[in-house]
Design a protein around this nucleic acid. Structure first.
Lengths: 208, 208
DNA sequence: TCCTATTGCAACTTCCAGTTGCGATGCGTA
DNA sequence: TACGCATCGCAACTGGAAGTTGCAATAGGA
């Protein structure tokens, strides 16, 4: 067990390139053709690799998909800090729309909403991805409260959820286009609701 | 072409029972195992019918699923009219939750969000299903406006969307449970937003 | 009862998941 | 530079499910 540092026994660079190429190809296939239509042979061909090689590194199709998704979790999304809640929220919404319409975003959404949800690891990945993002986005609201831009009893998570929920509704249910205009709209609506005291921390019943 | 009325040439009752059984079995398989795991042989077996019979009536798996879903479109959801917007919205939200957690609801959602979305007919079915429901639910808001319970400039569609969007978010993204409590919460939040003038018809910028 | 549309059945073809054995090759090390 | 081993390419396989076809059985209406 006397090895240089850690990880694989010998060659590192070679296999790592293969791994990266296959995972990238998996994401492209996922975003392009979807989970059901994703065949290992297509992934292998796109990665310039033989099918057997894929099966040597990943147990089966599911593990491949899960691994490709896990790679995306580490992808940090920018949290704006413009000094004003209106522009912060707008940038947050625009960033979401950019991600949701990007290749990797489409891939993650396709997998995370498809029949891949039968895979427990994918469910866990979904929770991690969206949970992390929500938690990181909340600081935008907290800063606004500290600056006095929002009432101190707003629930940060509720504001973020109120902003992204209509965007997801468009994306997944109504099928309306997801563009910058809808992002700005969602940001303004969420901000208005927060200012109106509708998104309070204690069960939101202000004018009841 | 001298036939009794219209449609099939001869026996009607026999084939109709088969059709109904297969479609019901398809929905059960869809809700239970999902779209990807739905095999025609399992559907046929569940319907007490041979695989060939299914293929004689439906061109392929996709057409079968689309047909099963189309059947569900006709399913009317109750529009409450209690005389008060608070209870109307609450009942609307509860009805949605009941549907979303029912067998047929799970089946529709599974298909409408899975890789079946690659099928244009499923996309069209999705638009029809949710478009119709939205349009029918809007009358609850209109009645409330007429009664003077809500400002006259609220956008009915926006109110309904604001109510169901967080429910879909729970159902599809965060994975939080969808129960009566979350339904009531969503109804109260949407009502509060509507009363606060946040869901106006003209671009929602009240306190800007 | 008879006639015929419809169903059941079995035997295919095709495609993809996943496996196995062997030969080829790339890469770090001596 | 040359060796050795890990990794990759390749081809041939099994197994299951989609979808097809020809024929026999059957059920319902006239």
């Amino acid at each position: 067990m006397k090895e240089s540092s850690k990880g694989s026994r010998r060659s590192i660079g070679r296999g790592e390139k293969v791994r990266a190429a296959v995972l990238a190809a998996t994401l492209e296939e996922l975003g392009g053709a979807g989970y059901a239509a994703l065949t290992v042979e297509n992934v292998a061909q796109r990665a310039g690799v033989h099918k057997t090689t894929v099966y040597r590194r990943w147990k089966d199709r599911e593990n491949l998909v899960v691994d490709a998704l896990s790679e995306q979790i580490a992808l940090e999304i920018p949290i704006p800090d413009t000094g004003a809640i209106a522009t912060d929220l707008r940038e947050l919404a625009r960033g979401f729309v950019r991600w949701a319409t990007s290749v990797s975003g489409q891939a993650v959404l396709a997998a995370v909403l498809s029949d891949a949800l039968r895979i427990p690891e994918v469910v866990a990945a979904r929770r991690r991805i969206f949970g992390d993002r929500l938690r990181r986005a909340e600081q935008v609201i907290r800063r606004a409260v500290e600056r006095g831009e929002l009432p101190s009893d707003v629930d940060p998570a509720e504001v973020i959820k109120a902003m992204v929920a209509p965007l997801y509704l468009r994306l997944l249910i109504t099928g309306e286009p997801l563009d910058r205009a809808s992002a700005d709209h969602a940001a303004r609506a969420a901000l208005a609701a927060a200012r109106a005291g509708v998104l309070g921390r204690s069960g939101d019943r202000p004018a009841e």
